[in-house]
Simulated scan of single mutants.
Amino acid sequence: MDTQSVITRTITVSGGRFAPGHLGELTQHLPFEMVDEALTATRTTQSRLRDLPSRVVVYLLLAACLFPEIGYPGVWRKLTVSLTGLPLVTPTTSGLAQARRRIGVAPLRWLFDLLRGPAATVGQRGTWWRGLLVCAIDGTILTVPDNPRMLARFTKHPGNHGGTGYPQIRLVALLACGTRTLIDAVFGPTTTGETTYTPHLLRSLRPGMILLADRNFGAKDLITEIADTGADVLVRLKNGRKMPVLARYPDGSYLSMLGRLLVRVVECEITISTTAGRHTGVYRLATTLTDHHHYPAAELITLYHHRWGAT
């Protein structure tokens, strides 16, 4: 005789203007229970009822990432525009900024560590290649607010990045190519280079991954560190770099050494088409996948194209 057990869980949630459904699509991706758990785990839940409870502030900050150009008051209006008929508060810019400082970065870091990852599906195009999860690493420059707190750590730089005159940060990210999902990220002052930040991402590499990277990441010690995690690498090398030829294979690739690391080198021509026209360049790729039978050179060249699709 089969028996069944039914477990019912009752959750008490906020009502009125703080009801979770009023926070729009964000609650579909980050349920309010998850946000509450982050606040509890980091001890940042408000100690008394406020017009801006900690849960609401977390969603405000998440929404601010989607609309960085309109400021906190503009984001608040987007979150509350449909709440007609409810007695809403109208927080000032300084009030919203104080609420952000009150909860700090801890709950957001907790949520990031919980959710980061490849989120890869078996059938999604570009996610897997010959049983390996296809990932890419790259860096970019972002602007941050021009205020004394930011200037104490970050530097202003002249240039054409759209934020001339603003402090800037360097962000280096590890992504899953098929889903463009963030696996890990690190950021800091632009006075530190991409390859210096990269070792902080090695914690997220593992066997079963293949990492695509451009020639800025082709330093022999860094590639060796990446290979030591068990992940494989497909990296572009600078054309002027001298690579010893240890053995040649029928597909045109050859066995070589990158420092103390045994690699296979593939030389090819790649044409890139953009709105400005077509550009053909000679590329030299190095990979830790040394079996030319199981990992043909032509497929490795095609695979390297996925790096542009993810970054």
Rank of each mutant, 00 (worst) to 15 (best):
R100N: 02
H22R: 14
R109G: 08
L62Y: 03
V144M: 02
L262R: 15
E69A: 13
T45K: 15
H279C: 00
T10G: 00
S82K: 10
P145K: 06
M209I: 10
I210W: 07
H292R: 02
D51H: 11
F67W: 13
T127A: 14
Q4L: 12
A176H: 01
P118R: 05
T3K: 07
A106V: 01
V58R: 02
K156F: 00
T181E: 15
F67V: 08
L237V: 13
L96F: 05
L23A: 04
V172R: 02
D113Y: 12
V75D: 04
R109Y: 12
R43N: 14
R215A: 10
T280K: 04
T195Q: 09
R153K: 14
Q98P: 05
L285N: 12
A213S: 09
A185C: 14
T196G: 08
P31F: 06
G240C: 04
T40G: 10
P167E: 03
T311Y: 07
K156C: 12
T12W: 09
L246A: 01
Y304R: 01
L174S: 06
P148Q: 06
V13E: 11
D146N: 14
V144T: 03
I270W: 04
I210S: 04
V233T: 15
E194Q: 05
Y59G: 01
R109H: 13
Q168P: 02
Y283D: 12
L261W: 10
V58T: 11
S273Q: 15
A173P: 05
E225D: 14
L60W: 03
A41K: 13
R130M: 03
L39D: 11
R149T: 15
A173H: 09
C268S: 14
S14E: 11
S5Q: 03
S94W: 06
P158R: 13
C268Q: 04
L234E: 09
V35T: 06
A231H: 10
Y166K: 10
A310F: 00
A63N: 02
D138H: 03
T8I: 08
D51C: 09
V35E: 02
P199A: 01
R100P: 02
I301F: 00
I7R: 12
V245Q: 04
P107C: 11
H157K: 12
